[in-house]
Simulated assay, not measured.
Amino acid sequence: MKKITAQTLLIIVFWFSQSAFSFKQPLPGKSVIEKAAEATLKQHILAEADWAMKQEPVTVTAFFCSRSAGGKHDFFSEADYFWPDPKNPDGPYIDRDGMTNPDNFVEHRKAMIRFSRIIGALASAYKITGDEKYVKQAVIHFKAWFIDPETLMNPNLLFAQAVKGKYTGRNYGIIDTIHLMEVAQGVIVMENAKAMDPETAAGVKKWFAAYTNWLMTSKPGIQEKLTTNNHSTCWAMQVASFARLCNNQVVLDSMRVRYKTVLLPNQMALDGRFPLEIARTKPYGYSIFNLDAMATLCQILSTPKDNLWVFETPDGKSIKKGINYLYPFVADKSKWTLKPDVMYWDNWPVAQPFLLFGANAYDQKAWLLTWEKLDHDPQVEEVIRNLPIRNPLIWL
């Protein structure tokens, strides 16, 4: 037998290494759940994308409210549940929890939701068709919101959910930018397209990096982080979403730790309900909203090595337990044994993302079937305000 020389061995190793790169490795296919979701949504996605292709950018600079303490580029909104005081009509507004004041300024929020709708539709259509025309249109909107000095939005929420006579802005307003999550995710989906120029992608990431830093270091951001209900969940959900776009692994790791050690153990009861949401005047809607947010956190943060979908606290709390608790009431709302919501009771549920994400994570066909039957295109503003994930395909 001939002795294998070092040179021969080197050639063999080189040949095998080249062979490994010469043959295409099979890419993981779509899950059964993802295929079913695409079949359910495809017609709606293409119709939405057709609408989005015709839309011009409208940013915060298109609207100004004289009650705002900020400038032209500052996002401004007024707290939904604050109203004039009947005993002092010209004085500070008073809180009426759960009761939306239709006269408050929300034009910036509406513009942001419209932006999210546009990018979500374009990214979804690009994902299922590969047509770069959708990316070209998205770039126009990215530049307007994040890069163009005439129309961009400043990367902070200092003046969100203000209260007349009391606050020029509050930490609670940070929840308004949950509607930027599908914008950030849309960038991730479209980033490698030829139509996405590197300068635009870099400019968008720079904006989101600055906003993430503000969320994590500013006084309002820290205050929102330390709340104890859906606001803290949504703070973490946003930070995770934006950090993933910016590939900030340190922040992503910190959000995984926060989910395991703060959000899940402190907000969920042993039976899977969220007591602080149950205590609100809209317990049904807020329970759904918080579960959607926690499920989205799991969808964003889970990795093969750190899968939050299978994480369980020592006393048995888990996202699966949360879904198992709420699912029967979403599948059949007549089973809800607690008080009905004071407003919008008839408008929930819709096609909640926790159903689809959970179905995909646990291969639960019943959850998928329920999701398929629910409304995928809600029109009620309050529902849309509390439904940041309206284009779930870009998250799968």
Score class of each variant (00 low, 15 high):
residue 203 G to S: 12
residue 204 V to R: 03
residue 204 V to A: 07
residue 206 K to E: 15
residue 206 K to G: 08
residue 207 W to L: 05
residue 210 A to I: 00
residue 210 A to E: 14
residue 210 A to D: 14
residue 211 Y to L: 02
residue 212 T to E: 01
residue 212 T to Y: 00
residue 213 N to L: 02
residue 215 L to S: 05
residue 215 L to E: 08
residue 215 L to F: 05
residue 217 T to Y: 00
residue 219 K to F: 05
residue 220 P to S: 02
residue 220 P to N: 03
residue 221 G to N: 07
residue 221 G to F: 03
residue 222 I to N: 07
residue 222 I to A: 02
residue 224 E to I: 03
residue 224 E to N: 12
residue 225 K to P: 06
residue 226 L to C: 12
residue 226 L to K: 13
residue 227 T to V: 12
residue 227 T to F: 13
residue 228 T to W: 07
residue 228 T to C: 02
residue 230 N to I: 03
residue 232 S to A: 15
residue 234 C to Y: 13
residue 238 Q to N: 10
residue 238 Q to C: 06
residue 238 Q to A: 00
residue 239 V to M: 03
residue 239 V to I: 09
residue 240 A to V: 04
residue 240 A to Y: 04
residue 240 A to T: 05
residue 241 S to C: 03
residue 241 S to F: 01
residue 244 R to D: 07
residue 245 L to H: 08
residue 245 L to S: 08
residue 246 C to F: 06
residue 246 C to I: 06
residue 247 N to A: 11
residue 249 Q to V: 10
residue 249 Q to H: 14
residue 252 L to W: 04
residue 252 L to Q: 05
residue 253 D to F: 06
residue 254 S to N: 10
residue 254 S to V: 04
residue 254 S to K: 04
residue 255 M to E: 10
residue 256 R to E: 07
residue 258 R to I: 12
residue 259 Y to R: 09
residue 260 K to E: 08
residue 260 K to C: 05
residue 261 T to I: 11
residue 262 V to M: 09
residue 262 V to T: 14
residue 264 L to H: 13
residue 264 L to E: 12
residue 266 N to C: 01
residue 266 N to F: 02
residue 266 N to L: 08
residue 266 N to I: 03
residue 267 Q to Y: 02
residue 268 M to S: 11
residue 269 A to D: 07
residue 273 R to S: 15
residue 275 P to I: 01
residue 276 L to G: 12
residue 276 L to W: 08
residue 276 L to A: 14
residue 277 E to Y: 05
residue 279 A to L: 07
residue 280 R to M: 09
residue 281 T to E: 08
residue 281 T to F: 04
residue 283 P to S: 11
residue 283 P to A: 11
residue 284 Y to S: 11
residue 285 G to T: 12
residue 285 G to A: 15
residue 286 Y to V: 03
residue 286 Y to I: 07
residue 289 F to K: 10
residue 291 L to V: 11
residue 292 D to S: 07
residue 292 D to H: 06
residue 293 A to E: 06
residue 294 M to W: 01
residue 295 A to F: 12
residue 296 T to C: 00
residue 296 T to L: 00
